[in-house]
């Protein structure tokens, strides 16, 4: 059987809210080492990967590897019934056709359980190599959210260029152009408010703003986001989920015809 317990439902609620518009459905692959997910958006230009490690859970048991096909809109409906501070337990028998979600209030005076019907989803598993990136930028996630939101009012695509001057986001559209540059900045006392630019070589790539905006739905998960860039490769936008794991969004760059 599979059983995983998290002390705060809020984490799972935020994760599913971050994913559900981009990917309508996907397989939660559970194994003794945790829960993982790979799913593409409907246009197949971006990929979402999620890794939640077994030791990040309060309790984790998985006797047998399983793929649980989840409709994220439906999972979201159920998670809306959980209080943020509720303890949440996910349970499934081996080869089950449903996932049970149990919510317990902090003082354990309210216990509810919901069964989510599982789906059979055919999905191709992609091998994502570990690699060195030309530029890795860590910045406040709220800053990233603001930049991509602000630029969306001006254009459809953004040129992201990392140089020793900083990371610059540029767009243009019918009403004009916009450039926003963030510099390496370790002045703020709080590490969460700092911007770190780790540059091996300058790099510039163009992306669809619509997707970068969508990734920002993960902002409530964590105060920092990491962007990894290499020429001609997908950008990786990564949000860590405390000690539990991380969600990563990969977006293919736009290239000249």
């Amino acid at each position: 059987m599979f059983e995983a317990r998290l002390p705060q439902a809020a984490v799972l609620k935020k994760l599913v809210e971050a994913l559900k518009e981009l990917v309508t459905e996907g397989n939660f692959d559970v194994s003794p080492s945790g829960i993982s997910l790979q799913a593409m958006d409907s246009s197949h230009v971006c990929l979402v990967t999620l890794q939640l490690n077994d030791d990040g859970f309060e309790h984790f048991r998985c006797d047998r590897n399983m793929s649980m096909g989840i409709h994220f809109g439906n999972l979201s409906k159920i998670l809306k019934c959980a209080g943020n501070e509720d303890t949440i337990t996910l349970k499934a028998e081996d080869n089950a056709d449903q996932l049970t979600l149990m919510f317990e209030s902090a003082n354990q005076d309210r216990i509810s359980d919901f069964d989510l019907k599982l789906m059979s989803i055919e999905s191709e598993h992609l091998g994502i190599p570990d690699q060195d990136y030309s530029a890795e930028v860590k910045m406040p996630s709220a800053e990233y959210q603001r930049i991509v939101r602000d630029l969306t009012s001006m254009g459809d695509t953004v040129l992201v260029s990392a140089t020793k001057e900083g990371i610059k986001f540029s767009t243009s559209g019918d009403i004009g152009t916009a450039n926003i540059t963030l510099r390496h900045n370790t002045t703020p006392e709080k590490e969460d408010e700092q911007t770190h630019i780790d540059l091996k070589e300058p790099v510039a790539l163009t992306f669809a703003l619509r997707y970068l905006n969508n990734f920002a739905k993960a902002t409530p998960l964590t105060p920092q986001v990491k962007l990894s860039l290499t020429k001609d490769l997908p950008v990786v936008v990564e949000y860590k989920v405390g000690e539990l794991g991380q969600v990563r969004f990969f977006l293919a760059p736009k290239i000249d015809d």
């Binding site: 197949h44 230009v45 290239i255 015809d257």
Partner: peptide
Amino acid sequence: MKQKSIGAFFSGA
């Protein structure tokens, strides 16, 4: 500008 499928960048396992 054009955009490749994300699958084109990663190998199928």
